[in-house]
Nucleic acid binder design. Structure first.
Lengths: 221, 221
DNA sequence: GTCTTGAATTTTGTATACAATATGCCATAA
DNA sequence: TTATGGCATATTGTATACAAAATTCAAGAC
């Protein structure tokens, strides 16, 4: 037997329910502030209350739900300040990921990232926003993978899920989009130069622009 | 009615159970790797399985427990790498807290922190380690409060709880203790000078020393 | 002696029943 | 009209019962 464990993905019912709820929240089917009636959700998900309630606890831990004693769960509503705070933290996490990635990045990693960057620029050129976002996410995930800190990656993913629930992504204007693509180019250059401080600064500035976009979208409501 | 809500703290059973378990884990009564038998714990805590299992989900979200499908929960065992990763993240979080605190710190905050620092040095002078740690924690909590980012504070607390379960704190030697006290003095000076970059560097270096201590303690087992 | 094999037992997973709390509605009084 | 009290309903909180899976351990095969 080799070292790698390959556990068969037998999702337990609470986990499956949590997963399903997570997407429902992120896709906006369950919008911010929505009250989650247990009995009703049980029917929709085809599970009983016990596993559903465990799913609630998991999602509450991720900050996607708030639970009020005797008053049930509801989808979290992010205030302007919450968004600001989340992005402040996200910037620090990305900055750390950058610093760590610089210490560990290989030439293969760089080649792969440059490929992604090219794909992203192509998507940008043909104004294909969904593909752009998909690749963009892949690049940031890849950076985290190179940083090789699972605890950081977990924190990153959790925070990302919370912000995704905001659904601010359609709000990107052309000028900001151009800038974001350019910043990505600089980021890969800094990574190639193994310049941790520069990469960190770029990532933090990059996140600040993203925060701006998110806050403007929030304002629009 | 003024803006502050003052909700009466009616802990629900799962929350109370989680709180109790958390302290049992951090105090080492439930050591790393311990299997948590549901029926047995139900009797010890005086609750039924349903709220206990919700408590498990909460603690698993905090990273204090791992749950294996059909095989129950056990107290997390931190590997050497886990500790390294946790401290890397912790350093980034503290660094961010420092940068934010610099932007918001008031003279009253500084006066309060200087008072704590004096108390801490007194505890250090009389070799009172428990008091030293209590004050040390208060200072770091205070810094987080000044940073005024609840999401950061939450991440900080969660990560701290995980590391506390390691119980490495009795492992501090005299040289390191002296250095830590001196670093704290420098930190307050940087905060007073509103020098965010300096404070960040100090906090990160401070954490690196702490990480060193933790790893040595881990080695000793 | 070691390795299977397969009940018996234990433990976890899920559903449901009952209890406690909150919510909504309507009657009544100021 | 507006506020208050109290009942009916709905919803959440907790315990327990049953189902499914894992673990244990002894008997037999090699």
């Amino acid at each position: 037997m080799d070292g790698s464990t390959l556990p068969i993905a037998r999702l337990t019912l609470p986990e499956a329910a949590a997963e399903r709820l997570r997407t429902l929240i992120i896709e906006g089917v369950l919008p911010p502030g929505a009250k989650l009636n247990e009995r009703e959700l049980c029917e929709r998900l085809g599970v009983s209350r016990t596993p559903l309630r465990e799913a609630f606890r998991m999602l509450a831990g991720d900050g996607l739900l708030v639970q009020l004693p005797n008053r049930g769960a509801q989808v979290v509503v992010l205030s302007r300040d919450d968004v600001r705070h989340a992005f402040e933290l996200m910037a620090a996490l990305e900055g750390l990921a950058g610093e760590l990635a610089v210490q560990r990045v290989t030439d293969e990693d760089l080649a792969y990232l440059r490929g992604l960057q090219a794909d992203m620029e192509a998507a940008h050129a043909r104004h294909d926003l969904p593909t752009y976002y998909a690749i963009n996410r892949t690049i940031h995930d890849r950076l985290n993978a190179i940083a090789a800190n699972p605890i950081l990656t977990h924190a990153f993913r959790t925070l990302n899920a919370r912000l995704h629930a905001l659904r601010f992504r359609s709000n990107l204007n052309v000028a900001k989009w151009n800038q974001a693509v350019a910043e990505h180019r600089d980021m890969i250059a800094a990574l190639a130069a193994r310049d941790g401080a520069a990469l960190r600064d770029l990532l933090i500035r990059h996140l600040r622009a993203k925060q701006q976009t998110a806050l403007e979208a929030l304002e629009a409501d």
